[in-house]
């Protein structure tokens, strides 16, 4: 069953006519061509599909767009503002925190939520916050470094 759904994605109001059983992940990638949001399992088991809904990290593979009308959805495409990279994006680039880069969008958003709530996390707190995002390339070291580099001292 298809329905017209109004979403706020990256500060843009978008109407999309789509099947209601499509998850946010599918609608972002397939209907809105926002392919920056990745997927590794579609079952809540990897964190690659993480986006922010009203500032909180959620798994887009287990969320229905129809339930998110009126809420602010932020994807990796919305992190940079006016062509200016978000400090986390800059730090990830500078610190080599993105190897293959496939886990990166989800991790950036999780990290953003952490720093928005908690500008002074310790390394252990960063570890805790990122425990729901698997990365197979980096051993997490450079990811933690990058977030520490942004953390307000």
């Amino acid at each position: 069953m298809k329905q017209l759904i109004t979403l706020n994605v990256n500060n843009e109001t978008i109407e999309v006519y789509t099947a209601i059983h499509k998850t946010l992940l599918e609608v972002l990638r397939e209907d809105l061509q926002l392919t920056g949001t990745k997927h590794g399992c579609e079952l809540g088991e990897c964190g690659a599909c993480t986006v922010l809904v009203d500032g909180e990290p959620v798994l887009s593979c287990l969320a229905l767009p129809i339930e998110l009308e009126g809420q602010a959805i932020l994807t990796v495409e919305g992190l940079a503002v006016d062509g200016e990279l978000h400090p986390l994006q800059q730090a990830f680039a500078d610190n080599g925190a993105a190897q293959c880069g496939y886990c990166t969008p989800g991790i950036l958003l999780t990290a953003k939520a952490l720093l928005d709530h908690h500008p002074h996390p310790s390394r252990d707190e960063i570890r805790q916050a990122l425990a729901g995002n698997l990365c197979r390339c980096t051993g997490y070291a450079k990811i933690l470094d990058a977030i520490e580099a942004v953390r307000v001292p």
Binding site: M1, H21, K22, T23, L43, I66
Partner: peptide, 12 residues
């Protein structure tokens, strides 16, 4: 991609 089967969605 694993996908949901179709359903009717009711939001009381």
């Amino acid at each position: 991609m694993l996908r949901l089967p179709p359903f009717e969605f009711l939001a009381p």
